[in-house]
Amino acid sequence: MFHAGTPAPTPEDLMRSRYTAYVMQQGPYLLQTWASATRPEHMDFAEDGGIKWLGLEIKRASMEGESGIVEFVARYKVGGRAHRMHETSRFIRDADGRWYYLDGDVDGQ
C-alpha cells in the first residue's frame, strides 16, 4: 500500500492500494486517497455487514492527462454468500501529481 509520502504512480496502482485498504479496513487511508469533492465524512466498517474480500481483477485501466479510469471486479463474501462488484472507477490527479479516487459506476446499481 502506498503512503502519504509515496503517491501511487497510476490510477491502477491507487485502485490496487485502495482495495488492499478495504481488505485491511484502513479507513484513514481510503479517506486520504478520496477526492475531497466526493469523499464521505467517515468510513465505518462496522456497517459493512461483515464483508470478506476475496480478490480483485483489473479489467482495464487508462489515463489521459489528469484523469484516469479503472474497471475492475472485486469478489467478496457476506454471510457465507459469494458476490462480485463490477465497477468503473474514475480518478483525478492534482497539481502535485497525486491520484485520487473520484467516483465510480457499479454495474447493476
Rank of each mutant, 00 (worst) to 15 (best):
M1A: 13
M1V: 10
M1E: 12
M1W: 02
F2S: 01
H3K: 14
A4M: 11
G5H: 11
G5Y: 10
T6K: 12
T6E: 13
P7Y: 03
P7D: 05
P9V: 04
P9H: 05
P9Y: 06
P11N: 07
P11R: 02
E12G: 01
D13T: 03
D13R: 13
R16N: 07
R16L: 06
S17W: 01
R18Q: 09
R18C: 07
Y19A: 05
T20V: 11
Y22P: 01
Y22H: 12
Y22K: 05
Y22T: 02
Y22A: 05
V23P: 12
M24R: 15
M24E: 15
M24F: 03
M24D: 15
M24I: 00
M24H: 14
Q25Y: 07
Q25T: 10
Q26G: 00
Q26H: 11
G27C: 07
G27M: 04
G27K: 07
P28A: 04
Y29F: 11
Y29K: 11
Q32K: 11
T33G: 03
T33N: 12
S36C: 00
S36P: 02
S36R: 14
R39I: 02
R39T: 06
E41S: 14
H42N: 12
M43L: 12
M43E: 14
F45K: 05
A46K: 14
E47T: 07
D48S: 07
G49T: 05
G49H: 12
G49V: 08
G50W: 09
I51D: 09
I51R: 15
I51V: 11
W53P: 08
W53C: 01
G55Q: 06
G55K: 05
L56K: 09
L56G: 09
K59S: 07
K59P: 01
A61D: 08
S62I: 00
M63F: 09
M63R: 12
M63P: 00
E66M: 10
S67Y: 08
S67V: 04
G68Y: 04
G68V: 01
G68K: 02
I69D: 13
V70H: 06
E71L: 00
V73P: 07
V73L: 03
A74H: 02
A74G: 08
R75S: 14
R75P: 01
R75N: 10
Y76F: 15
K77M: 12
V78W: 02
V78Y: 02
G79Q: 09
G80F: 04
A82P: 00
A82F: 04
R84I: 03
R84G: 08
R84S: 14
H86Q: 13
H86I: 10
H86W: 12
T88F: 02
T88V: 14
T88N: 07
T88R: 15
T88M: 13
T88W: 11
S89V: 07
R90H: 14
R90L: 08
F91W: 10
F91T: 04
F91K: 10
I92G: 03
D94R: 04
A95E: 15
D96R: 13
Y100R: 09
Y100S: 08
Y101F: 15
L102K: 11
L102D: 11
D103M: 01
D103C: 00
G104H: 04
G104T: 11
G104S: 06
D105T: 03
D105M: 03
D105V: 07
G108Y: 06
